[in-house]
């Protein structure tokens, strides 16, 4: 019992010191871990990559309630999913530990801007508007917009959403899309997709609209819900990188290219997404470029 006690105190002190180290920034030089595995490239200390290596960890902002991309798994207590795997791959390239932090559609950009997280890997669709605030990697996944309804619903098309209560997350692209596609729909904007899931189960909304992969996660949890299979938007996901950090963007893009070329992307896809998707709907790595992705969601005005 005494042992556990002291171990707890030790852990608390380590946490405290590392928080201090992060808070004090780069004048701390001892950098804890020396994980210089042979293939890890050491980056100059003045680059973001160098600073991350010095800190010994990278913090990625992921969803905690969106299987199969980012889920804080209640059974294991681990945060896992397609986004987490990609973030872990990037961390391994730097030879550092990966830390996750919950980043919702609404708070992920502020968290990146204020430096709480180093990268956004939070099912984030590339849009021109977001591109003004953060830099995007090349697309790493392409999702499609779809609608989820309870069994026996009379909603069969986008048009049917008019006059119906439709849930989506604050800060997602779908608030605008639904306003355009079904202007009479009554939008319910909540923080989390798990709240939309809760509301549609409780019958408080008639439909949920967002990326098909997110909705698929809901169907896995509750098979009485169903997807309409409309695929009415194309949503290429990008990794969010602090605005103007060209070296970091280059590094992330190179790592992503390697992730795809080495077949690791496909392995992750098969593990997280492929098993839930019908045979004829399986997809490979995105064949769309960042510029094409941005053009899909241009600025309004």
């Amino acid at each position: 019992m005494n042992g556990t006690h002291w171990r707890l105190i030790a852990v608390a002190m380590v946490v405290f010191v590392s928080v201090l180290a992060v808070a004090c920034g780069d004048d701390e030089d001892d950098g804890g871990e020396e994980t210089t595995a042979t293939e890890v490239e050491q980056f100059p200390a003045d680059t973001t990559m160098g600073k991350i290596q010095e800190a010994g960890e990278i913090t990625i902002g992921v969803k905690y309630d969106v299987p199969p991309f980012g889920l804080n798994n209640p059974q294991t207590g681990e945060v896992e999913g397609f986004d987490v795997d990609l973030g872990t791959y990037i961390a391994e390239k730097l030879g550092v530990e990966v830390q996750t932090r919950e980043a919702t559609s609404d708070n992920r950009i502020p968290l990146l801007v204020d430096g709480t997280i180093d990268l956004i890997l939070s099912t984030m669709t590339i849009t021109e508007e977001r591109d003004l605030e953060v830099d995007f990697s090349e697309p790493y996944y392409v999702a499609n917009g779809d609608v989820l309804v309870p069994e026996g619903s009379d909603i069969q098309s986008l048009d049917d959403l008019n006059g119906k209560r439709v849930c989506t997350a604050l800060g997602s692209t779908y608030a605008d899309t639904i306003e355009k596609e079904a202007p009479q729909a009554e939008l319910r904007l909540v923080d989390l997709y798990s709240e939309c899931f809760d509301l549609v189960q409780a019958g408080q909304v008639d439909a949920v609209s967002t990326d098909n992969v997110i909705l698929t996660g809901m169907v896995i949890q509750d098979p009485t819900l169903q997807l309409l299979g409309l695929d009415y938007t194309t949503e290429p996901y990008g990794i969010g990188i602090p605005e103007g950090d060209t070296e970091m963007k280059q590094f992330v893009d190179d790592t992503l290219a390697e992730y795809i070329d080495s077949g690791t992307w496909q392995e992750a896809y098969d593990e997280w997404v492929g098993q839930y998707v019908a045979e004829d709907q399986q997809q490979g790595p995105p064949d769309i470029t960042l510029d094409e992705a941005i053009a899909l969601f241009p600025l309004e005005k």
Partner: peptide, 11 residues
């Protein structure tokens, strides 16, 4: 709620 929606529109 409205402010948050405007925020997610404009940033």
């Amino acid at each position: 709620n409205q402010a948050r929606e405007v925020n997610s529109d404009t940033g």
